[in-house]
């Protein structure tokens, strides 16, 4: 009897939802840094993305439910020991704080009489710094949450690992820097952030696969499934190419196209690695 069963409960839709969260999570950091540097347009784009993508994530999650109309029960009858509750709170906070940050950042240039009363807050650096820091904290939490949610489950050995929160964190940094590679392709710091986070993501992911190969039969089966996947091999090759190209571009070529292409590869890598992580997760059901 083959007692290893692969997860088919969470699939590509949840992978997409988590990819959106990864991009949104660290867009907050880049949005805040752009604001500090006076790059208002870049700050507003980043904060707006950080507010909108989690909304799409919540929509995907809601569509995944058997009773979408009853999702309010999450807040009416909450289970404080469930990560999903904290995920909901984290995502809601990220949406609210990012939307507020984008609004206050853009407020002085809007010239809307109704909002003019809030204008002094936009000019208060203490207020904007506090809002920015809170927005980043919410982003970091949401990024980590997608890893913690999975690593907490004892039943799936491939997920029950301290590597998962680290992978989720690097996915977040890579997601935010991938987005900013489109917005600020000439910025060397963004290129460096993308290069290093993508390299760390791939390195930790590979290390996790290697450790899983030595683990329980279910973890071994999961790692074997990922390593044998053509999608993984192509993505791995593309991400290594992206890292090498970014490094070469930083030191020699200095073209705008390389960071943009690397950013696109970064986003694809996050989605594919997350999808494989989910689909290769396997239970080892008991046998006598």
């Amino acid at each position: 009897m083959e007692n290893i069963v692969f997860n088919d409960v969470w699939g590509w839709d949840i992978a997409l939802e988590m990819t959106f969260l990864a991009i949104a999570s660290f867009s907050t950091l880049f949005a805040y840094l752009s604001y500090r540097e006076g790059q208002l347009r870049d700050a507003v784009i980043g904060a707006a993305v950080a507010a909108v993508l989690p909304v799409f994530s919540l929509i995907i999650l809601n569509l995944h439910l058997l009773k979408p109309e009853a999702s309010y029960l999450l807040f009416l009858s909450p289970q404080p020991r469930s990560w999903m509750l904290y995920g909901g709170i984290g995502m809601s906070s990220l949406i609210a704080l990012s939307a507020l940050f984008a609004l206050f950042a853009v407020l002085p240039s809007l010239k809307v009489p109704l909002l003019s009363r809030l204008s002094p807050l936009s000019h208060s650096s203490a207020f904007m710094n506090a809002l920015g820091v809170l927005m980043i904290l919410a982003g970091v939490f949401v990024s980590l949450y997608t890893g913690l949610l999975m690593s907490y489950e004892r039943g799936i050995p491939f997920w029950h690992s301290a590597a998962l929160p680290a992978i989720a964190l690097f996915m977040g940094i890579a997601g935010g820097s991938s987005l900013y590679a489109f917005i600020r392709p000439a910025d060397q710091r963004v290129s460096f952030a993308l290069l290093s986070s993508l390299a760390l993501l791939v390195a930790v992911y590979l290390a996790h696969l290697m450790v899983s190969l030595l683990g329980s039969p279910a973890a071994h089966a999961s790692a074997t499934k990922v390593l044998g996947s053509g999608l993984f091999q192509v993505t791995l090759l593309l991400s290594v190419l992206a890292v090498v190209s970014l490094a070469a571009n930083m030191f020699w070529f200095r073209t705008r196209y390389v960071p943009i292409i690397a950013g696109a590869i970064g986003l694809i890598t996050i989605f594919v690695l997350r999808l494989l992580l989910l689909e290769a997760g396997a239970w080892e059901f008991p046998v006598i």
Binding site: V5, N7, V9, W10, L61, H64, L65, L66, K67, P68, A70, S71, L73, L74, S77, S82, M84, E153, R154, G155, I156, W283, E284, F285, P286
Partner: peptide, 23 residues
């Protein structure tokens, strides 16, 4: 009545005891 069908419990069950009943 309270189950919203998020399937998180199916993921968490190490013994494969739970399943979804769809509309």
């Amino acid at each position: 009545d309270k189950c919203i069908g998020c399937a998180y419990c199916i993921i968490a069950c190490p013994y494969g005891a739970r399943y979804k009943v769809k509309a």
